[in-house]
Computed example of a mutant assay.
Amino acid sequence: MSRRELVTTVLADLVAPLVLFYGLRAAGADAVTALLAGAAVPAARALWVLARDRRAEWFALLVLALCLASAATALVGGDERVLLARDALVTAALGAVLLASVPTARPVLFTVGRLTLTEAGHSPDEWDRRWASSARFRGIWRWLTAGWAAGLFADAALRVQAAYTLPVDVVPAVHAVQWFAVLAVLLVAGQVWLRLPRHRALIFS
């Protein structure tokens, strides 16, 4: 994902729903209406991504499905707590994808690391050779991917807890901040893992 696309994703999937929610709440809208209006922005972006790429991009499909599920929940009388807990499904699904990739030929975090290496102007050939020949190298990336999956599952659990215990108007802000906090923790923990003395030579030399 390019920097521009990352910024667009953050604005459409995090910032815009938050602004809409609190703007509509300040204008007197009920919580369900404000949450559904906020969900319309990620849904519109997901549709645009699917139309642009002309293929079934799984994350866009997930976001769109969750937005449609939110609308259906509201129509059958679901309350705002259910809509707030919906956010947990995104990180749980991401965690499931990472976990499912652990025993495969290319765990997600190895693929991401390899892509980052390439974008930085370095050849990934040495990493490919180490992947083919070193069980320890493969283990480093598999454990890192599993660790990220565990972190995302923990994030999903915290989102559900927040949705059902905190005041309704506080939860969207908490969830937004939690995205950045969890990402920062996972990124820092990942770098610490990769730079452990027993791993550093295999990864960075």
Score class of each variant (00 low, 15 high):
residue 83 L to K: 03
residue 101 S to F: 04
residue 134 S to I: 05
residue 147 G to K: 01
residue 116 T to S: 10
residue 68 L to Y: 05
residue 37 A to P: 11
residue 75 L to P: 06
residue 27 A to Y: 10
residue 69 A to R: 14
residue 128 D to G: 05
residue 108 V to F: 13
residue 107 P to C: 06
residue 126 E to G: 09
residue 98 L to P: 00
residue 17 P to M: 02
residue 140 I to R: 05
residue 142 R to I: 00
residue 48 W to F: 14
residue 23 G to P: 07
residue 38 G to A: 07
residue 125 D to W: 10
residue 100 A to L: 15
residue 118 T to F: 10
residue 22 Y to F: 15
residue 104 T to R: 13
residue 32 V to A: 11
residue 73 T to Y: 12
residue 29 A to P: 11
residue 135 A to T: 13
residue 39 A to T: 07
residue 28 G to A: 12
residue 150 A to S: 14
residue 52 R to C: 02
residue 145 T to V: 09
residue 119 E to C: 05
residue 26 A to H: 11
residue 50 L to E: 01
residue 15 V to L: 12
residue 108 V to C: 06
residue 37 A to F: 06
residue 145 T to K: 03
residue 18 L to F: 14
residue 94 L to T: 11
residue 81 R to G: 09
residue 94 L to G: 04
residue 142 R to T: 02
residue 123 S to L: 00
residue 129 R to S: 03
residue 21 F to M: 09
residue 151 G to S: 02
residue 40 A to S: 15
residue 34 A to F: 02
residue 71 A to C: 08
residue 84 L to H: 10
residue 131 W to K: 04
residue 52 R to F: 04
residue 133 S to R: 14
residue 119 E to N: 06
residue 8 T to N: 09
residue 117 L to K: 12
residue 19 V to T: 11
residue 100 A to T: 08
residue 95 G to A: 06
residue 132 A to S: 12
residue 70 S to M: 15
residue 91 T to L: 03
residue 104 T to E: 11
residue 119 E to H: 12
residue 47 L to R: 15
residue 65 A to S: 13
residue 14 L to E: 10
residue 65 A to L: 12
residue 32 V to M: 08
residue 22 Y to A: 07
residue 29 A to G: 08
residue 51 A to K: 09
residue 8 T to G: 12
residue 116 T to W: 13
residue 94 L to D: 00
residue 84 L to P: 09
residue 121 G to C: 05
residue 103 P to F: 10
residue 37 A to R: 05
residue 96 A to S: 08
residue 109 L to S: 10
residue 39 A to N: 07
residue 133 S to G: 08
residue 75 L to S: 15
residue 126 E to T: 10
